[in-house]
Amino acid sequence: MKRSKRAAVFLFFLMAVFFLINSPIVWKWMYPIKYQKEILEASSRYQVDPYLILAVIRSESGFETDRVSRKGAIGLMQVMPDTAEWIAEQAGLGPADERYLYDPVTNINMGTWYLSFLEKRYEGDVVKVIAAYNAGPGKVSSWLMREQWDGKRETIEDIPFGETRQYVQRVLYYHDRYRSIYTDQLQ
Rank of each mutant, 00 (worst) to 15 (best):
K120G: 13
T83K: 08
T83C: 11
K37V: 08
P104L: 05
L54R: 05
H175M: 12
E41S: 12
M1P: 02
Y100H: 14
E163N: 08
M77C: 05
G111S: 07
A16S: 08
W27V: 01
V127N: 00
I159T: 09
Q47M: 10
V17P: 00
K139R: 15
N22E: 01
G111V: 08
R3K: 15
L118A: 10
R121S: 03
V140M: 04
D184N: 15
K139P: 02
S4N: 15
L14V: 12
L144T: 09
L93M: 09
G72A: 15
V126F: 01
K2P: 00
I53M: 04
D49F: 07
K139E: 07
A91Q: 11
K2R: 12
I87F: 06
E38N: 05
F117S: 08
Y51A: 10
P32G: 11
W143H: 11
E147M: 12
K128F: 07
L11M: 11
K5R: 15
G111W: 06
Y102P: 03
M1N: 07
L186K: 12
M145P: 00
E123H: 13
D125Q: 09
T164P: 03
S142M: 12
Q36P: 01
M1H: 06
I159E: 06
L40W: 01
A88T: 13
V17R: 00
A84K: 02
F18H: 04
D49G: 10
E41P: 00
A84R: 02
E119N: 13
N109R: 11
Q169D: 07
K120P: 01
Y46A: 04
L20W: 05
Y174D: 05
Q47V: 10
D184G: 14
K34C: 02
S59Q: 09
L144C: 11
A88Y: 04
K34G: 00
M80Y: 08
R45A: 13
I87D: 05
E85I: 13
R99H: 13
L93P: 04
A73E: 12
G138R: 07
F161G: 06
K139W: 03
T155C: 11
E98Y: 05
T83P: 06
M110F: 14
F18T: 08
K152D: 13
S69C: 15
S61P: 03
R146E: 14
Q78Y: 07
T83H: 09
G138C: 06
R177I: 10
P160M: 12
D184A: 15
R170M: 10
E154K: 13
R170H: 02
G111P: 03
D176E: 15
Q78H: 10
M15L: 15
I33C: 03
A91P: 07
V127R: 00
L172Q: 06
S61F: 04
L14Y: 01
K5D: 08
D103H: 04
Y173S: 11
K128E: 13
Q90R: 15
E98I: 00
L144W: 06
